[in-house]
Design a binder for these strands. Structure first.
Length: 775
RNA sequence: GAGCCCGUAGCUCAGUUGGUAGAGCGUUGCGUUUACAUCGCAAAUGUCGGGGGUUCAAAUCCCUCCGGGCUCACCA
C-alpha cells in the first residue's frame, strides 16, 4: 500500500473501485432461499429506464444518485437488495433520431422500407444504446447489470403481447374513428398527455361566414372554418335563441357550406361572440358536439398539415398558415371581418418534436380506462402506495379520476407492432374486415397491422416485465409444461432465473418492488400506468413508495435543455470534480423544495468535502499506525504493530458500542460520541423519509465540524489509545454513513484501512450499516 | 378558470413538531500548531416579500395582498 497522497484524486480511484465491486459481484443479490433478513422483504428498485438514445442529464444524475443512496444503504443493512437496470426503446424519440441521421446521409425511411429501417434502428441501438448505461456506471450506480433489460428484448416483447391480448380478450381494447392529436412532423397519433401547451399571443378574428349569416363568430384559426358544419351557442343565450335548430346555406370565402345552429351548454357566452364555429374534423370538442348533433364532418386539413380537396379548389394543397391568410384576405375583401383581438392562446405541440399538433379524424386503437382506473385510485387513496412528497398524491388522483381512454396506436415503425392480424373477407354486399388477435400463428392470409404501440404501453409493464413477467409467472395448475420456446432467446434465458420447479424466480422473489423514484413530469405518462398495469397483471401494487424528486433548473431558473444550451452536463461535472462530489452535491441541494436552481458551487464544496474526508483518514491512519512517525518517513503501510493489536481490532467493531462510549474520558470524547449517535439517528430517519438533502447536511456538518475541526484538534492534546480508538471508530462510522452518497472515496479509504488491518470487512460496500440500537 | 410550489445575508439555499436567524460561495483580517491552503481561526452583512391575526413567544400556524414559477382545463 502506497502512502495516501495529500489530496484525493477521483481519477485514480473511480474506475478501479468500480471494477472491484463488479468483480466481487457486489451488486448482485443472492436469492438462494426464501428467508430474508429479519423477515424483511427484499428491497428493490426498478430504474426508470432511460431512453436508449439518451445521454445523462442532470435529472438522471440526481435521480440515479438518489436511487443508489437507497440501494447501497439497504444493501449495507443486510437486506437482499436489487436495483434492476435497463433502457427504453423510446419509440418516437428514437425513430426521430435515426431519421435525422438518415437524412444527413440523404436517405429516408419511406424509400428504404420498414424492414430496412428497423434494421437501421437496431444498428443504431447496438452502437449507441450503451452510452447512457456507461454513464450510469461512471456515476457509480450499483445496478445489477447481469439483469439489465431493454423494453424491446424478446422476453419483454412477449410481455407486451401478452398484455395486449389480455386487454383485448377482456374487451378493453377497441378500434375507433375519432379526432385524435396528430403530429404533422412525426406523422403519428399522440395520446392526450403527449401534447403540450405553449402559451402564446394569438389573434382572435371576429367575422361572419357571409353577409346573410345572422351570427358572428370568433376564431384563432380561420382556415379550419372551411370545415365548419355548425355554429354552437349556449342554450341560455337569448341573443341567438331564435336561430337554434335552423340551418343556413352560406358561401364562405368561395366555398358552399350548410351551417346548422346548435345549442350546447359548454359554450361560454362571454367569450368572443358567444357563438362558436363548430369544426368537427379538427377539434376534439367539436367532434363530440358533431356526434351528439349528427353533424357532417368535413376534413379540410390532411395528415401533412395541408389543405384537402374538400377545403375547396382554391385552398387545396396550401399549408394551413397560407390558407389562413387567404381566408382572411377573402373575408377582408368582402368586408366581413368585424374586429381582431389579441389574446393569450395555448398552442398545442408534440412533446417529442415541439411542432404544432393538428387534430385529425383517424382510426386508432384505444384502451378503455374505466375499469383499470378503479384499483389504481383505491390503492393510492388508501395509502397502499404512498407518494412522497405527499402532495403528489392529489395530482395523481385528480388525473386518474378524469381519465379518458388511452390512444395506444402510433403510426411509426420503431416499437412493438400491434399483435393484430387482419384479413379482408369479401361479403356479398361489401368488404368486412376481420380482426384477429394472434399469440403465435395467424391463420393463412392474414396480415399484421402496421401500427406500433405507444412506448408508454410497454413502459407501463416495467416493474414486473423487467423481472421476467409473464414467463416467470406461476401457474399452479400447469407449471411444468415448458411450452415456452425461449431457447433461442439470449436475453430471456439470462433473465429467467430459476424458472423451473420450486426454485424461486425473480418475479416471485423481488416483486413488488419497493420504491420508485422519478420525475414529476411523468406521473401521468408512466407512474399512473404502472400502477394500474401492476394491479391488472399481477394483482399486486408495483411498488410501495413513489418518490418524486425535484426538477433541476439552471442557475437562472430556466429548464435545462440541450438544444437551448441551458443545460449542465453531469459527465463534465464528474470529470471536473469526481463522481462522489457530483453525487454528494446533488444530494446536498435536494432539500425541501420541488425546484433546484443548480449551483455548481455545491459540487465544488462537495469536492472539498471529499478531500476533507480523505485527510481525516490520513490523520487517523497516521495516529493508528505511526505513533512516532517522523516527517516524511514514507509509507503508511507496513506497520501492523499497533494495527495488529487485538484489543484495538476489537474496538473496531463498527457500531458505536456502549463499551466504546464508556471510554469517553474527556468532554471532547463524550461530545463526539454523542454527536455521532445523533447523526446515526438523523441520517436514518432522514433517509427513511426521502430527505436526502438534510441527511447530507448533517453528514457534512458532523464530519467537517464536529469531527475534524473540533475532535481531531482536541485529540492532538490527548493522544492515548482510547482516543485513537474513538478516532478510528468515528472514521469508520462516518465512512459507512457516507458510503451511499460518496461510494468511491469511502471505499478507497476503506481499502487502505483494510490493508492495514484496521477494519475487518474487506469491502465497505458490504459493511454493516450503522443503526441506533437503543431505539 | 382550478390546483400546486416558491419569495430568509451580495449569490445559491438550510432552518422535522413555534422559543432570541444558519451553511456554502463571495468579502475583510489574522494564521504554516502532529491530516488537509481543495486548510484553520476570527469578523462584517438579514425590516426572514408586505400587512393583519393566534400566542408569553412566529421565518415557523391562520388570513390577505404583492412578486416569481409550475401543472391541469373543451375558452372557440
Amino acid at each position: 500500500m502506497e502512502e495516501l497522497p495529500k489530496t484525493y484524486n477521483p481519477k485514480d480511484t473511480e474506475e478501479k473501485i468500480y471494477k472491484l465491486w463488479e468483480d466481487a459481484k457486489a451488486f448482485e443479490p443472492k436469492i438462494g432461499s426464501r428467508s430474508t433478513v429479519d423477515g424483511q422483504r427484499p428491497f428493490v428498485i426498478a430504474i426508470p429506464p432511460p431512453n436508449v438514445t439518451g445521454s445523462l442529464h442532470m435529472g438522471h444524475a440526481l435521480n440515479n444518485t438518489i436511487q443508489d443512496i437507497l440501494i447501497r444503504r439497504s444493501r449495507m443493512k443486510g437486506v437482499p437488495t436489487l436495483w434492476i437496470p435497463g433502457t427504453d426503446h423510446a419509440g418516437i424519440a428514437t425513430q426521430n433520431v435515426v431519421e435525422k441521421k438518415l437524412a444527413k446521409e440523404g436517405k429516408n425511411r419511406h424509400e428504404m422500407g420498414r424492414e430496412a429501417f428497423e434494421k437501421e434502428v437496431w444498428a443504431w441501438v447496438d452502437e449507441y444504446g450503451h452510452i447512457i448505461i456507461d454513464q450510469l456506471k461512471k456515476l457509480g450506480c450499483s445496478c445489477d447489470w447481469s439483469r439489465q433489460r431493454f423494453t424491446m428484448d424478446e422476453g419483454y416483447s412477449e410481455a407486451v403481447k401478452t398484455a395486449f391480448k389480455h386487454y383485448y380478450d377482456k374487451g378493453w381494447i377497441y378500434q375507433g374513428e375519432r379526432v385524435i392529436n396528430w403530429c404533422v412532423r412525426c406523422q403519428t397519433a399522440l395520446s392526450d398527455i403527449e401534447v403540450e401547451h405553449l402559451d402564446q399571443k394569438g389573434k382572435l378574428y371576429f367575422f361572419k361566414y357571409d353577409k346573410n349569416f345572422p351570427i358572428s363568430i370568433a376564431t384563432t384559426r380561420p382556415e379550419t372554418k372551411l370545415g365548419d358544419t355548425a355554429v354552437a351557442v349556449n342554450p341560455e343565450d337569448k341573443r341567438y335563441a331564435e336561430f337554434v335548430g335552423k340551418t343556413f346555406k352560406v358561401n364562405f370565402v368561395g366555398v358552399e357550406r350548410e351551417i346548422k345552429i346548435i345549442a350546447d351548454p359548454n359554450i361560454d357566452m362571454k367569450f368572443g361572440t358567444g357563438a362558436v364555429g363548430v369544426t368537427p374534423a379538427h377539434s376534439l370538442i367539436d367532434y363530440e358536439m358533431a356526434e351528439k348533433n349528427g353533424l357532417p364532418i368535413i376534413k379540410v386539413i390532411d395528415t401533412l398539415g395541408k389543405m384537402t380537396a374538400e377545403a375547396g379548389k382554391e385552398y387545396e394543397g396550401l399549408k394551413a398558415v397560407e390558407a389562413s391568410q387567404k381566408v382572411l384576405d377573402r373575408l377582408e375583401q368582402k368586408g366581413l371581418i368585424e374586429k381582431t383581438e389579441e389574446i393569450d392562446n395555448a398552442l398545442s405541440v408534440c412533446y417529442r418534436c415541439n411542432r404544432p399538433v393538428e387534430p385529425q379524424p383517424s382510426k386508432q386503437w384505444f384502451l378503455k380506462m374505466s375499469e383499470l382506473a378503479k384499483p389504481a385510485i383505491e390503492a393510492v387513496e388508501k395509502g397502499e402506495i404512498k407518494f412522497s412528497p405527499p402532495r403528489w398524491k392529489k395530482v395523481y388522483l385528480d388525473w386518474m379520476e378524469n381519465l379518458k381512454d388511452w390512444c395506444i396506436s402510433r403510426q411509426i415503425w420503431w416499437g412493438h407492432q400491434l399483435p393484430v392480424w387482419e384479413v379482408e373477407i369479401k361479403d356479398q354486399r361489401s368488404k368486412i374486415k376481420n380482426t384477429i388477435y394472434v399469440g403465435d400463428n395467424p391463420p393463412e392470409g392474414y396480415k399484421q397491422v402496421d401500427d406500433v404501440l405507444d412506448t408508454w404501453f410497454s413502459s407501463a409493464l416495467w416493474p414486473f416485465a423487467a423481472l421476467g413477467w409473464p414467463q416467470n409467472e406461476r401457474h399452479p395448475e400447469s407449471s411444468d409444461e415448458g411450452s415456452l420456446s425461449l431457447s433461442e432467446n439470449r436475453h430471456s434465458s439470462e433473465i429467467l432465473r430459476s424458472t423451473q420447479n420450486d426454485e424461486i424466480n425473480d418475479l416471485d422473489y423481488f416483486y413488488p418492488t419497493t420504491t420508485l423514484s422519478t420525475a414529476r413530469d411523468i406521473i401521468y405518462l408512466w407512474v399512473a400506468r404502472m400502477i394500474f398495469s401492476g394491479y391488472e397483471f399481477t394483482g399486486k401494487k408495483p411498488f410501495d413508495n413513489v418518490y418524486i424528486h425535484p426538477t433541476v433548473f439552471n442557475k437562472d431558473g430556466q429548464r435545462m435543455s440541450k438544444s437551448l444550451g441551458t443545460g449542465v452536463d453531469p459527465i463534465e461535472l464528474i470529470d471536473k470534480y469526481g463522481a462522489d462530489a457530483t453525487r454528494f452535491g446533488l444530494a446536498y441541494i435536494n432539500t425541501g423544495t420541488q425546484d433546484i436552481k443548480f449551483d455548481e458551487n455545491a459540487i465544488l464544496a462537495s469536492q472539498k468535502f471529499c478531500n476533507k474526508l480523505w485527510n481525516i483518514a490520513r490523520f487517523v491512519m497516521i495516529q493508528m499506525g505511526h505513533p512516532e512517525q517522523s516527517e516524511g518517513s514514507g509509507s503508511l503501510s507496513a506497520n501492523p504493530a499497533s494495527a495488529g493489536d487485538s484489543s484495538l481490532t476489537l474496538r473496531m467493531t463498527p457500531k458505536t458500542s456502549p463499551s466504546l462510549k464508556l471510554r469517553a474520558a474527556s468532554d471532547a470524547d463524550k461530545k463526539i460520541l454523542d454527536s455521532l449517535d445523533h447523526l446515526i439517528i438523523s441520517v436514518n430517519s432522514n433517509l427513511d423519509s426521502f430527505r436526502f438533502g438534510q441527511a447530507a447536511h448533517d453528514l457534512y456538518d458532523f464530519v467537517w465540524h464536529d469531527f475534524a475541526d473540533i475532535y481531531i484538534e482536541e485529540s492532538k492534546k490527548q493522544a492515548d489509545d482510547n482516543t485513537k480508538a474513538i478516532l478510528l471508530s468515528t472514521l469508520t462510522q462516518s465512512l459507512k454513513l457516507l458510503h451511499p452518497f460518496m461510494p468511491f472515496v469511502t471505499e478507497e479509504i476503506w481499502q487502505t484501512l483494510y490493508e492495514q488491518k484496521l477494519v475487518a470487512e474487506k469491502l465497505l460496500i458490504n459493511a454493516s450499516w450503522p443503526e441506533h440500537k437503543s431505539k
